Amino acid sequence: MAGIDRRTGAIIDDLSSSLQAAVFILSTRISSVVLLREFGGGVIELLGRSMTPSLFAAWQQLIATAIDLWEPRLSVRRVVPTGSVDEIRTGKAGLLIEADFRPRGHLGDYTVERVVGFTLSFGGGIRAVAS
């Protein structure tokens, strides 16, 4: 299955489409989609607060839950921060998300094709880069 890039309109493969969906989910505020008020990641609402271990744990859980809930082609295994302590303090940190890629998950077939790792970086907007 192929998707369409939301910025260029070009045809993209299934993995790129699911990563694009994950970025869209995490960058959308809850209740900002008019006809689907419960849609969103809940992550944006926590940005700007003092980072404590409990808040960071909640943030990791929100990311994993939002992707599991709204993107059936991905099943999150773990979410870990990337970057040094100084980068995290200055807000330049990123996240490494490891997930099972299930290309037919939206059809109810949860067979795992492969495990993917992708990085979310927050400097200059949220971007996903698969590894």
Results as ranks from 00 to 15, higher is better:
92 K>L: 15
89 R>K: 15
103 P>V: 05
103 P>A: 03
87 E>S: 08
80 V>G: 01
95 L>W: 00
92 K>E: 10
93 A>M: 14
79 V>A: 07
99 A>W: 08
86 D>Y: 01
79 V>T: 11
83 G>N: 06
104 R>C: 09
88 I>Q: 10
78 R>V: 03
78 R>G: 08
84 S>Q: 05
95 L>M: 15
99 A>H: 01
88 I>S: 03
91 G>K: 15
98 E>I: 15
96 L>H: 01
92 K>I: 06
77 R>C: 01
77 R>I: 11
79 V>S: 08
90 T>H: 02
105 G>I: 04
91 G>V: 15
94 G>W: 04
101 F>L: 09
88 I>A: 14
96 L>N: 04
81 P>N: 04
88 I>P: 00
77 R>K: 04
90 T>D: 07
87 E>K: 00
91 G>F: 02
84 S>C: 10
92 K>C: 09
79 V>E: 07
95 L>C: 15
94 G>H: 05
90 T>N: 05
89 R>T: 01
102 R>A: 09
86 D>V: 10
86 D>N: 05
93 A>V: 06
101 F>V: 11
106 H>G: 08
99 A>N: 03
98 E>H: 04
104 R>Y: 11
106 H>S: 14
102 R>K: 15
93 A>L: 13
89 R>S: 06
85 V>A: 11
89 R>Q: 14
86 D>Q: 11
106 H>A: 13
101 F>E: 03
105 G>K: 06
86 D>F: 04
95 L>R: 10
81 P>S: 13
85 V>C: 07
78 R>D: 10
77 R>L: 06
100 D>H: 12
105 G>A: 08
103 P>K: 06
102 R>C: 13
102 R>G: 02
81 P>T: 06
104 R>D: 14
77 R>W: 01
87 E>L: 12
99 A>I: 13
91 G>Q: 14
82 T>M: 08
77 R>Y: 01
95 L>P: 08
88 I>K: 02
85 V>P: 00
96 L>M: 09
95 L>I: 15
77 R>F: 02
102 R>Q: 14
88 I>H: 00
96 L>G: 00
103 P>G: 05
88 I>T: 09
92 K>F: 04
102 R>E: 05
103 P>E: 07
87 E>A: 13
94 G>K: 12
91 G>W: 02
83 G>Q: 05
92 K>T: 07
104 R>G: 01
86 D>S: 07
101 F>A: 13
99 A>K: 03
101 F>H: 13
100 D>P: 06
106 H>R: 10
81 P>A: 12
100 D>M: 03
84 S>V: 07
96 L>E: 07
